[in-house]
Protein backbone atom coordinates (compact mmCIF):
# COMPACT_ATOMS: atom_id res chain seq x y z
CA UNK A 1 0.00 0.00 0.00
CA UNK A 2 1.38 3.41 -0.98
CA UNK A 3 0.02 6.93 -0.83
CA UNK A 4 -2.04 7.84 -3.88
CA UNK A 5 -3.40 4.29 -4.15
CA UNK A 6 -7.11 4.06 -4.87
CA UNK A 7 -8.82 1.76 -2.37
CA UNK A 8 -12.24 0.47 -1.43
CA UNK A 9 -13.17 -0.25 2.18
CA UNK A 10 -14.56 -3.76 2.62
CA UNK A 11 -18.29 -3.75 3.01
CA UNK A 12 -18.76 -6.66 5.36
CA UNK A 13 -20.09 -6.28 8.89
CA UNK A 14 -18.71 -8.90 11.26
CA UNK A 15 -19.74 -8.62 14.90
CA UNK A 16 -17.15 -7.66 17.49
CA UNK A 17 -14.68 -4.87 18.08
CA UNK A 18 -13.54 -3.20 14.85
CA UNK A 19 -12.24 0.31 14.13
CA UNK A 20 -13.65 0.76 10.65
CA UNK A 21 -16.66 3.08 10.79
CA UNK A 22 -19.82 1.67 9.25
CA UNK A 23 -20.44 4.78 7.15
CA UNK A 24 -17.20 4.17 5.22
CA UNK A 25 -17.78 0.50 4.41
CA UNK A 26 -17.84 -0.13 0.69
CA UNK A 27 -16.68 3.42 -0.06
CA UNK A 28 -13.82 4.31 -2.39
CA UNK A 29 -11.04 6.71 -1.46
CA UNK A 30 -7.38 7.54 -1.93
CA UNK A 31 -4.60 6.61 0.49
CA UNK A 32 -3.25 9.91 1.83
CA UNK A 33 -0.37 8.33 3.75
CA UNK A 34 0.62 4.98 5.17
CA UNK A 35 1.30 4.71 8.91
CA UNK A 36 2.33 1.99 11.24
CA UNK A 37 2.48 -0.93 11.41
CA UNK A 38 0.21 -1.10 14.42
CA UNK A 39 -1.06 -4.21 16.21
CA UNK A 40 -4.47 -5.30 14.96
CA UNK A 41 -7.08 -3.94 17.43
CA UNK A 42 -9.45 -6.76 16.52
CA UNK A 43 -7.04 -9.13 18.30
CA UNK A 44 -5.83 -6.74 21.01
CA UNK A 45 -9.39 -6.16 22.18
CA UNK A 46 -9.75 -9.83 23.09
CA UNK A 47 -6.39 -10.19 24.80
CA UNK A 48 -4.90 -12.06 21.86
CA UNK A 49 -1.48 -11.77 20.32
CA UNK A 50 -1.92 -9.07 17.70
CA UNK A 51 -0.39 -9.06 14.25
CA UNK A 52 1.08 -5.76 13.08
CA UNK A 53 -0.92 -4.13 10.30
CA UNK A 54 -0.13 -1.12 8.15
CA UNK A 55 -2.60 1.66 8.87
CA UNK A 56 -3.71 3.95 6.05
CA UNK A 57 -5.15 7.42 6.24
CA UNK A 58 -7.71 7.32 3.48
CA UNK A 59 -9.35 10.42 2.01
CA UNK A 60 -12.95 10.25 0.81
CA UNK A 61 -15.14 12.89 -0.81
CA UNK A 62 -18.38 13.71 0.99
CA UNK A 63 -20.13 12.97 -2.31
CA UNK A 64 -18.73 9.41 -2.30
CA UNK A 65 -19.78 8.80 1.29
CA UNK A 66 -23.14 10.58 1.47
CA UNK A 67 -24.19 11.34 -2.11
CA UNK A 68 -26.13 14.57 -1.95
CA UNK A 69 -27.19 14.09 1.67
CA UNK A 70 -24.44 16.28 3.09
CA UNK A 71 -23.95 20.02 3.33
CA UNK A 72 -21.18 20.31 0.71
CA UNK A 73 -20.40 17.27 -1.49
CA UNK A 74 -16.93 18.57 -2.40
CA UNK A 75 -15.78 18.60 1.23
CA UNK A 76 -13.68 15.63 2.37
CA UNK A 77 -13.33 13.07 5.14
CA UNK A 78 -10.15 11.33 6.24
CA UNK A 79 -10.03 8.29 8.47
CA UNK A 80 -7.44 5.72 9.53
CA UNK A 81 -8.26 2.29 8.16
CA UNK A 82 -6.22 -0.85 8.86
CA UNK A 83 -4.96 -2.34 5.63
CA UNK A 84 -6.81 -5.65 6.05
CA UNK A 85 -10.02 -3.65 5.55
CA UNK A 86 -8.85 -2.20 2.22
CA UNK A 87 -9.02 -3.56 -1.32
CA UNK A 88 -6.65 -1.99 -3.80
CA UNK A 89 -8.33 -0.74 -6.95
CA UNK A 90 -6.83 -0.35 -10.41
CA UNK A 91 -6.80 3.23 -11.53
Amino acid sequence: MVSGQSVRVKSYSPPGHVRTPYYLRGKTGIVERVLGPFPNPEQLAYGLKAEPQPLCRVRFSMAEVWGKATDNPSDTIEAEIYSHWLEELDT
Partner: peptide
Protein backbone atom coordinates in the same frame (compact mmCIF):
# COMPACT_ATOMS: atom_id res chain seq x y z
CA UNK B 1 -26.58 -4.37 16.83
CA UNK B 2 -29.03 -3.82 14.02
CA UNK B 3 -29.82 -6.31 11.27
CA UNK B 4 -27.32 -4.46 9.07
CA UNK B 5 -24.52 -5.43 11.43
CA UNK B 6 -24.00 -1.84 12.45
CA UNK B 7 -23.26 -1.45 16.13
CA UNK B 8 -24.71 1.24 18.40
CA UNK B 9 -21.45 3.06 19.15
CA UNK B 10 -20.61 3.43 15.45
CA UNK B 11 -22.66 6.62 15.12
CA UNK B 12 -20.99 8.61 12.33
CA UNK B 13 -23.61 10.06 10.00
CA UNK B 14 -26.66 9.67 12.25
Amino acid sequence: MTASGRRWHDMGGD
